[in-house]
Write a protein that binds this DNA or RNA. Structure first.
Length: 285
DNA sequence: AAAAGTGCCAACCGCCGAGTT
DNA sequence: CAACTCGGCGGTTGGCACTTT
């Protein structure tokens, strides 16, 4: 079931788009819409492959594209969403109107990732470089977002360690890994992790003056919780239900939120807890 | 002033899932 | 049911702009 190339390599232009090409593409789409990307370049008189046209339109020419630097609110959203969704740029972009997945991916790789790595183990101790921009100061001051960054760092580290461990366990023909890192990942995907995300949202709502913009996180978290865990699904729709759920995990979450950086020893005890059964159990066991 | 190094981002590439034939 | 097309996605890269030496 091989996949043929989307266009003939011969006679197809590559590289940067010229203003003339942009104009042709915009005019064509304005007139006819973007129905079939494969035939579009031919019909529009462009020597480009359909994919290239689609990308150019989506990432650059679309009228609703938002230009200019990312706001601190957008940065915060990206960090939180990346913490929840990982590298699912399209999903992240769908929550940031006017921003493209490519733009967000680039922004993450060139700015946010480096910043998070740099701040890595010293988030509590303010580094001068970290707080050099006003936007950074703003979200650094939000404890909820700071906690998400902590979690994001820990999660990325854990994923890294886990992949190394899985690799070495494959080499050693060992069937099971029960380590620090997958302990963290299970916690992240467990009810406790999910409720942490929800509480973070609630905190963000009350911390920030732009609570309306943050309210979408609540639904995101609910969505995540219900899709990840059937136990949560039953209560996801009702306010009272979700409150009960939050109350039940409250003490554990207080511990989590106040946990000093890198102190994963806390998780060891939770492994005994029956609630601490995230989807990763199925995934890695 | 020029070479080397670095950062950034637009665009490409290859893979995947859904839909169609 | 297999073969195929298409749109979409995420990872990667080429080249330009800027900074440093």
């Amino acid at each position: 079931m091989g996949r043929s190339p989307c266009c003939d390599k011969d006679g197809v232009r590559k590289g940067a788009w010229t203003p003339e090409e942009d104009e042709l593409l915009v005019q064509y789409i304005k007139k006819h819409g973007c129905g079939n990307w494969r035939t579009l370049p031919k019909n529009a008189g462009l020597l480009r492959c359909g994919k290239s046209c689609r990308l150019r339109w989506i990432n650059y020419l679309r009228p609703d594209i938002k230009r200019g630097p990312f706001t601190s609110e957008e940065e915060g959203k990206i960090i939180q969403l990346h913490g929840m969704l990982g590298n699912r740029w399209a999903a992240i972009a769908s929550h940031l109107p006017g921003r493209t997945d490519n733009e967000i991916k680039n922004y993450w790789n060139t700015h946010l990732k480096k910043r998070l790595c740099r701040s890595g183990h010293s988030l509590e101790a303010k580094e001068p470089s970290f707080g050099s921009h006003r936007s950074e100061e703003k979200y650094e001051s939000s404890s909820s977002v700071r906690h998400v960054i902590q979690w994001e760092n820990a999660r990325v580290e854990a994923e890294k360690r886990l992949s190394m461990e899985l690799e070495s366990s494959c080499l050693n023909h060992s069937s099971k890994t029960n380590t620090h890192s997958d302990c963290f990942l299970r916690l992240w995907h467990s009810e406790v992790g999910q409720s942490f995300r929800m509480i973070t949202v609630k905190k963000a709502e009350s911390d920030s003056p732009t609570s309306q913009a943050n309210s979408f996180f609540a639904s995101m978290a609910q969505e995540q919780a219900s899709s990840c865990n059937p136990k949560v699904q039953g209560t996801a729709g009702s306010d009272s239900g979700s409150h009960e759920f939050l109350d039940a995990s409250d003490s554990a979450l207080k511990l989590l939120l106040d946990m000093p950086d890198g102190n994963l020893g806390f998780f060891e005890g939770l492994e005994q807890n029956e609630n601490f059964q995230g989807p990763l159990h199925d995934r890695y066991d």
